[in-house]
């Protein structure tokens, strides 16, 4: 087993152990933090497919994350007040079943990623960054100015959605759901990266002209990856809304996009467990630096600048003793 695999296993085990210990020592806050890490790690794992494997620097993944959140919030709010979402052409009612909410969140964020990706991928490089950022901002402003679902104030979810056979209000149960989804997403990323599609995606990242010359459309390959990436972020968003029992435009804000990107880079792009490690580190920093100073973001910013300038390859890169950063 190489060092990266060993470190990955350690991260997976550590993330599983933290809430169990938290439970044993009666520190429920630790369980919440671990759940947050799992969910944000899932969003980062999604972004890693676009950004790491596909080389698409998306600064707009908050749009998919937030849409997933709003799907959960909107469906739950309709379930609560027994008002159907639509009556025509067919009756669509709200629901609090995760097994319904997740596919809807995945489809909605996937469609959004398809539209945003199809337009953004007409360009590359710095334009791609600015355009994904701008489209996410559009969704953000829409959420603010559309009053039906709380507008600027957001939308509360009064009852956490349900999962058959589990008590989602039990923090450990809810953590287990998020953790399993995270591991599944990482497993899927692994298979994807090793597959024929992964090969084509790597080709598109390294040299789009080469890929086109062998008759594979870089646009289609990248767009497919972008949609998969957005879907994962959307699923994470639905979980995040359930964790907080609240969804607001801040989930859609560009700070959220930036943070998801920070998780990925902090952990190391194209590292399977990189985003989860990055999210964990970020949450730990937030809570330790937050104790030191209320201006902890200043310290975090300085730390990130230092990381970019002096330590390339992310945390896993440093731990695995190899810097890789293309």
């Amino acid at each position: 087993m190489n060092r990266e695999a060993a470190i990955s296993l350690l991260i997976a085990a550590g993330l599983l152990a933290a809430p169990l210990l938290g439970n044993a020592f009666d520190e429920p806050f630790v369980i919440t933090l671990a759940t947050k890490v799992a969910i944000l790690g899932l969003a980062g794992t999604g972004l890693n497919i676009a950004l790491g494997y596909g080389g698409m620097v998306s600064l707009g993944h908050a749009a998919f994350f937030g849409l997933g959140g709003y799907v959960a919030g909107i469906l739950a709010s309709h379930a609560l007040n027994y008002e159907p979402l639509f009556t025509a052409p067919l009756l669509v009612e709200g629901t609090t079943q995760m097994l319904i909410i997740w596919p809807v969140a995945i489809v909605v964020s996937g469609v959004a990623a398809l539209v945003i990706g199809a337009l953004s991928l007409r360009t590359t490089g710095v334009f791609f960054i600015m355009i994904t950022l701008a489209f996410a901002q559009m969704v953000y402003y829409f959420a603010i100015s559309w009053p039906a679902y709380g507008g600027e104030d957001g939308l509360s979810i009064y009852i956490r959605s349900e999962f058959p056979g589990l008590n989602t209000l039990n923090p450990l149960h809810f953590f287990a759901i998020c953790y399993v989804l995270l591991i599944l997403a990482i497993g899927f990323s692994f298979l994807l990266s090793q597959s024929r599609f992964g090969l084509a995606l790597g080709g598109a990242r390294q040299n789009a002209q080469r890929l086109a010359t062998v008759g594979i459309s870089p646009f289609r390959v990248k767009l497919t990856a972008f949609v998969i990436s957005g879907m994962m972020a959307g699923l994470a968003g639905a979980l995040y809304a359930d964790l907080n029992r609240f969804v607001s435009p801040s989930m859609l804000s560009w700070h959220t996009s930036g943070e998801i990107m920070v998780f990925v880079i902090l952990g190391g792009t194209r590292r399977l467990f990189g985003p989860a490690a990055g999210a964990a580190l970020y949450i730990v920093l937030e809570n330790t630096l937050g104790d030191v100073s209320e201006h902890w973001l200043l310290l975090l910013g300085a730390l990130l600048v230092a990381l970019v300038l002096f330590a390339r390859g992310g945390v896993i890169g440093i731990l695995a003793g190899q810097t890789r950063h293309a």
Binding site: V262, H295, L297, L298, L304, V305, L307, L309
Partner: peptide, 27 residues
């Protein structure tokens, strides 16, 4: 130090600078 880096590094570093400036100003 960022001119020769890729856009990803530039985005991350300048995003981090926003945190520094905003939080510094708030301070």
């Amino acid at each position: 130090r960022l001119y020769r880096r890729d856009h990803l590094d530039q985005v991350l570093a300048t995003f981090a600078l926003i945190l520094v400036f905003s939080e510094g100003t708030r301070w």
